[in-house]
Design a protein around this nucleic acid. Structure first.
Lengths: 326, 326
DNA sequence: GTGAAAGCGCTAACAC
DNA sequence: GTGTTAGCGCTTTCAC
């Protein structure tokens, strides 16, 4: 079955293609006599007319495509955001393209280039680095773009994220309230930049790495004989590394040491002991990012850079107790 | 900066747009004098020429877009497949569109319609039902399509999946080898079809539901006083539901009852006790699905329907032991 | 309120 | 080997 085109509809309805176009387009439907319009709409439906998005895009230079760029979709942080964003965009008639950069700059650059060539209307970027030329390029070229999850240093683009600072505060206050006075913070490795050669292997290993890193730091901590009754980890994986090492050394959690993670990854509530952790509102972030982008798409730049939204986080209290009496 | 077009390149290189087009297109580059071609390529690069995919697509009726349709991207089964597929497709110059149908027929139909209107070149479908009109439509209209994860009854389309049957056999043989003679299989609810009204709520709950379902069935099992020393669950979530109920009843795992899951979801190895489960080669499935689709895209139908590939699965032995002596 | 006509940027016959 | 021409399907000025 060759697809039915606008001309076909027009012919069948006995009108000019231009009129059919106007009738079928919500924006311009008012310009057409309501009887004619009804007839056209009817015929279109009967014939099963579906507009050719390519042709339309070529003419209007709008593709109704939005791309979401994530570093690694297997990281459980992202699927809920992706899903939420897609829901909103899809309802608004947009198609979401997902790209996984595999944590690689070059890949990201190539992907972005291809997407922009394809006429992508806007971007939701979850790959921001503090200093990020790609994002500068996007900002400069005025392609509607919203940042999620991570922000850049320049703050030139709208950003939607979880309020991590408050999350940390909640964690610490919780421990303090329990009576902990010696709390250690383990951030894991900071230098995620890597040489070109080992980068591929590294990218594969990045998630394990952080868990391993947590274990390593915890080990050093134990060796250093520093006094502590609680540990706050930079993320759940690090926390899990810590838990392993503590278990390895026969240190009981949470009776001897309380541990807090970050992110509330799927299933961390099923760990033994369950992990207290900070939950980010991932769906809300996805929704809001999509809405923010839509606003730019439909109504132009929205007070650029002013949109720096931090959504509330939640401390999931599960495996923390007061420190053991001396 | 207004984007540089093919005409601009042609003008700058002192040739006709047609020639520039040929020179820049790998397929037809041979038709152009190599000196001229080099000059054109040079100019194109200097000017930062990026072809307009919309215009090209309109002309060639190929969009270089492939869509992957999944029921729920937050189900950890899918991200590895999506990621793997995207890698392959992206290398071949294709863009991957991800759509999450939210386990909903209507949504799926709408999405498919829009995607097809957008000129999507091919589909990777992870949402197949045994009896699936959408897929029949795709098959009939000869849109290149590959099925993953779930197959249809008709087998009219290429399918790539894990060898679940062997997985189950491995699980059972493993238990048998350990000496189990009373093994129960819990499949969870079969009737995932639902009335329209409660479907939205249901879809939200579907994952929990299966876990809850596992718990419920396990509870019934205990009440029935049936003798068993091992349980094989239809998936990891059901297995987790089972584990909870057993723990609730003070039944020790694996000493009193061994449990086996299916899927090797992220983190199930961190459960206590760790869960023995069957691991599907998700990345390989994604890769192969993409390759299969590419083959169709580039070289036409590949012995349609004959491609029904089951990739090897692996039993991750973690939390199973011999049954306790009577 | 509707028809006419031009053109978005590109490629593929067809000439020469 | 390269220029010419036409047209993919749609929208949008401009007439009337």
């Amino acid at each position: 079955v060759p697809p039915v085109k606008l001309v076909d509809v027009a012919r069948a309805a006995g009108v000019h293609p231009g009129t059919a176009s106007r009738a079928l387009n919500p924006e311009t439907a008012g310009q057409v006599n309501s009887d004619t319009r009804r007839r056209i709409v009817r015929v279109a439906k009967d014939l099963g007319y579906v507009p050719n998005a390519l042709a339309r895009g070529l003419r209007t230079s709008r593709s109704y495509v939005v791309a979401m760029v994530v570093p690694d979709i297997t990281n459980p942080l992202f699927p809920p955001m992706v899903r939420a964003a897609e829901q909103v965009l899809s309802e608004a008639g947009y198609t979401l393209v997902l790209t996984d950069t595999d944590n690689d700059d070059d890949t990201e650059r190539r992907q972005l280039e291809r997407l922009r060539a394809g006429g992508t209307d806007g971007f939701i970027m979850a790959t921001a680095r503090w200093d990020d030329p790609q994002l500068d390029a996007l900002a400069t070229s005025k392609v509607p773009t919203v940042l999620v999850n991570r922000n850049t240093g320049t703050h030139r683009l709208p950003y939607i994220g979880g309020d991590e600072r408050t999350g940390m505060r909640l964690a610490v206050e919780h421990l303090a309230a329990l009576g902990h006075t010696q709390v250690v913070y383990l951030s894991g490795p900071h230098d995620t930049s890597t040489g070109r050669e080992r980068s591929a292997a590294f990218r594969q290993a990045i998630r394990t790495y952080t868990e391993v890193a947590g274990a390593e730091v915890a080990r050093k901590l134990l060796v250093s004989r520093q006094e502590f009754t609680a540990i706050v980890a930079g993320n759940d994986l690090i926390a899990m590394g810590v838990l392993s090492v503590l278990a390895e050394h026969g240190i009981k959690c949470p009776t001897e040491v309380s541990v807090i993670g970050f992110n509330d990854m799927t299933m961390v509530n099923r760990l033994t002991p369950p992990l207290t952790t900070v939950r980010l509102p991932l769906e809300r972030i996805g929704h809001l990012a999509a809405r923010t982008l839509l606003a730019e798409l439909e109504s132009g730049p929205q007070d650029a850079g002013a949109i720096q939204t931090l959504l509330g986080v939640e401390l999931m209290v599960r495996g923390t107790t007061a420190p053991a009496p001396k």
